[in-house]
Design a protein around this nucleic acid. Structure first.
Length: 554
RNA sequence: GACCCUAUAGUUCAACCGGAUAGAACAAUAGCCUCCUAAGCUUUAGAUCCAGGUUCGAGUCCUGGUGGGGUCACCA
């Protein structure tokens, strides 16, 4: 046998080698193309399939089925890994894995225990995921939820693939919005002590502003009537709101490793440095009292302002400096998670980073489409300033953290997500997340019963006992898990993991329906019990990556 | 108006690099608890926006329409 084939992807490589060897014998002069192995949609078509014969029909001037048959005849089926090779349809070659190979793999998975699925493709890679990054002007809304949950889940899956991941929250506590926020708090404070204060134009109207003002009043008394005390209100607002944000995140199972204040970039001179670097490259010029960045050099139809005529930089300048800062911190990969509203601006940042002599390939951007809130059958426009929004906390009060996370993750980031508040509220027991959790709880329940009737502690299971169709299907699903992790980590699309877990849960529920443990003879009961041990581990690990609990009971 | 994203079952979404009979869930339909949790299993019905093109083969790629979302400020 020689080489060890201990994962599905290793199996695919093995099949590729076999096919290549066959092709070299059949057509020595042929320039062998990239061979793709895929899992057929229908189980009738085996466990793995290739379309090489179809792609080679033209070059070899032969019909695909005939080519496929010739290749199939040259495949070595004596190795013990493969059980059968067939030609089917227009010229596909289908492979079936041998049962003995499946048992061996299941046995390995069983021995890996809770670490089953952990990979090493990102071993020794320093990765940063920046997400949420909402300025402290108000509570996190449902809109921020998708960002937060996506970022955290991507971080988790990268960790499972072996990466050393840092979660960072970038914020700005110095801009115009923060000033308006402070003025809003001050106005509420003055109103609270009976003064006739004018509320700032475009101010923040949420009740949380009044609460912060009350707190300032309690802690500092009613002496802060002068304009010079604005900084106190600003600080109180920032701290109060940040505490709130952190609590909301914690409730969603999210913990940041670091918070990065935009202001740092001004203090350490990074901003000036960036301007200098871009100026040296001739990419910056002055016009109408403002400083412009020649984005037209990078295919944009307009140039972009970096510093306004007022002397204030636009947000793009610190964004550039921030990304350079990340690369300076030696991350092998810096991932940004942000909404579709940034889609037009990040190319400027990338261009600038590149122009300053940094490797922008290390920056990867995940753009997710916006969440449309639907309430009472109508789209719901949100605005933080008008306090017209649904907070994440309110949502979690209604449906819980697990459902909230699941809801944001079940769709591909690139698709528009419709979030029907009424539906999410009443989803309750019909929610798809329970389907996965129930599978886990059901297994744990069986385990409690099994422990009362059997004692397996002295022997290791003999998986060859498993031959029922439902058992084989479940084993095959389980073995896909490590590759799903790798794939999800590479694509950064957590919904792929959800789709997999759904299939796994379906395979388990089917098994539950068809096969029993209690009352079966000891060898079979043992094998089935440990099959479920592995199933439960995959479910718990998968749910863990999604940041969702795997309950013992439901 | 220009640019970006998007269009799949009644509804919300899948479909790995262009592959075989387009999958789920909810809603609808007909069944299954003397049996380890019926939050489950099984049954029936139902879809690729329109018009061209490339290909042995298109939901997937190209062109042109149409509908939905977003971005185009010395606002963040």
């Amino acid at each position: 046998m020689g080489l060890q084939i201990n994962t599905l992807s290793a199996m695919q490589d093995y099949l590729k080698q076999q096919i290549e060897a066959a092709l070299r014998k059949l057509a020595p002069d042929l320039d062998v193309p990239e061979i793709t192995i895929e899992k057929p949609r229908s189980p009738e078509h085996g466990d793995a399939a290739t379309n090489v014969a179809l792609t080679l029909a033209k070059v070899l001037r032969d019909n695909p089925r005939s080519i496929a048959q010739k290749i199939a005849d040259h495949i070595d089926v004596t190795s013990g890994y493969i059980h059968g090779v067939e030609v089917a349809g227009p010229g596909f070659i289908n492979f079936r894995f041998s049962d003995s190979w499946l048992y061996d793999q299941l046995s390995e998975a069983y021995q890996s225990g809770r670490n089953f699925g952990r990979g090493s493709t990102l071993q020794d890679k320093k990765i940063q995921v920046e997400f949420v990054s909402a300025n402290p002007t108000g509570p996190l809304t449902v809109g921020h939820g998708r960002n937060a949950v996506l970022g955290d889940t991507i971080a988790r899956v990268l960790e499972w693939a072996g990466g050393d991941v840092q979660r960072e929250y970038y914020f700005n506590n110095a801009g115009r919005q923060m000033r308006i926020l402070a003025e809003s708090v001050r106005a509420r404070y003055l109103q609270a002590i009976g003064l006739d204060a004018e509320f700032p134009e475009g101010g923040y109207e949420g009740v949380y502003i009044t609460e912060i003002a009350q707190k300032v009043l309690q802690e500092n008394g009613d002496e802060l009537t002068g304009e010079e005390h604005l900084a106190i209100f600003r600080k109180a607002a920032e701290e109060g709101i940040f505490d709130d944000i952190k609590q909301t995140l914690a409730r969603m199972n999210i913990t940041m490793d670091s918070f990065f204040n935009e202001n740092t970039l001004y203090e350490d001179g990074s901003i000036d440095k960036v301007i200098g670097l871009l100026r040296d490259k001739g990419l910056v010029y002055e016009k109408d009292g403002a400083t412009w960045f020649k984005t037209t050099e990078f295919g944009k139809d307009k140039d972009t302002v970096l510093i306004k005529s007022s002397g204030e930089p636009t947000y793009r300048l610190p964004d550039i400096a921030y990304h350079i800062n990340k690369l300076d911190r030696d991350f092998d990969l810096a991932i940004d998670v942000f909404g579709a509203d940034h889609i037009a601006t990040y190319p400027d940042v990338i261009s600038a980073v590149e122009a300053c002599g940094f490797d922008s390939d290390k920056i990867d951007v995940i753009v997710y489409q916006f969440v449309t809130i639907v309430k009472d059958g109508k789209p719901f426009k949100m605005s933080t300033r008008k306090a017209n929004f649904v907070t994440l906390d309110e949502l979690m009060d209604e449906v819980g953290a697990d459902v909230t996370r699941f809801f944001f993750l079940m769709r591909a980031p690139g698709t528009h997500l419709e979030f029907d508040i009424n539906e999410a509220k009443q989803a309750g027991e019909k929610n798809p997340v329970f389907y996965l959790q129930y599978a886990h709880a059901r297994i744990q329940s069986i385990m409690r019963k099994v422990r009362q009737s059997y004692d397996f502690s002295k022997k290791s299971p003999d998986f060859r006992q498993l031959s029922h169709e439902s058992e084989i299907t479940l084993i095959k699903r389980i073995l896909e898990f490590p590759d799903i992790i790798t794939f999800t980590a590479r694509q950064r699309e957590p919904h792929k993991l959800i789709n997999f877990l759904n299939e796994l849960a379906t395979a388990f529920h089917k098994f539950y329906h068809d096969c029993r443990i209690l009352g079966e003879d000891e060898k079979l009961a043992h094998a089935r019990t440990e099959l479920l041990t592995v199933t439960a581990i995959v479910l718990a690990n998968g749910l863990g990556i999604l940041g969702i609990s795997a309950p013992e009971k439901m």
